[in-house]
């Protein structure tokens, strides 16, 4: 891995931090805050590809764990990861990797429709699949309750999928970095 890749990885970890500075909306009955950071997860995967995108977001998760206040509202530290919503943060790198993998597979015919699909699976579905059971286990909640409690995220996530897909398609045209797979 060359220094260029290292710099790109650092850049997207920084993008995650900047997205965390956006005002945070906390709903009274929802155990996890709305955050713009899942947008960064999708962007990292769909612009850098699986390996670099996954590493960029893994780096961000490491920054959280080593105690930098990089989550919305200046939160950070291992406590957040071990808490009820920590599964979503642990899922971020996996989500970026999956987004990147799907993007690489679709790269030759990549367009807005593919971008929407890749981002929705990697940047939303993967996060739910890891984050919601985590919430159920850590909070000793029935899985069904954890799922119903998470429905409120759908509209926001749909909006982020669209924003990320539009940006990914535009960046592919101007500055393509992903290498097609298969």
């Amino acid at each position: 891995m060359r220094s260029r890749d290292i710099a790109l990885i650092a850049l997207f970890a920084a993008v995650m931090v900047v997205l965390g500075l956006f005002p945070l909306i906390e709903l009274p009955l929802v155990p996890a805050p709305f955050t713009a950071q899942t947008l960064g997860v999708m962007l990292a995967g769909s612009i850098l590809g699986a390996r670099r995108g996954g590493l960029a977001i893994l780096l961000f998760t490491v920054l959280v764990a080593i105690g930098l206040p990089v989550l919305p509202g200046g939160r950070g530290g291992i406590g957040v990861i071990l808490g009820v919503t920590g599964g979503f943060i642990v899922a971020y790198p996996v989500g970026a990797f999956v987004t990147g993998l799907l993007t690489e597979l679709a790269w030759r015919r990549y367009n807005l429709a593919w971008a929407l699909l890749c981002n929705a699976v990697g940047g939303a579905l993967v996060l739910y699949v890891i984050g919601i059971p985590w919430m159920a286990v850590v909070g000793d909640l029935p899985l069904r309750k954890a799922i119903t409690g998470s429905i409120v995220f759908l509209p926001g996530d749909a909006a982020k999928v669209i924003v990320a897909a539009l940006a990914a398609v535009a960046v592919r045209r101007a500055y393509p970095l992903v290498e097609a797979r298969a």
Binding site: R2, S3, R4, A7, L8, A167, A170, V171, A174, Y175
Partner: peptide, 20 residues
């Protein structure tokens, strides 16, 4: 978002090449 991403990507790639 797209112009910002393209600008910062170019900058980061340039910095990486300088490091190399």
């Amino acid at each position: 978002l797209a112009p910002l991403l393209i600008k910062t990507l170019r900058l980061a790639a340039g910095l990486g090449e300088a490091l190399d």
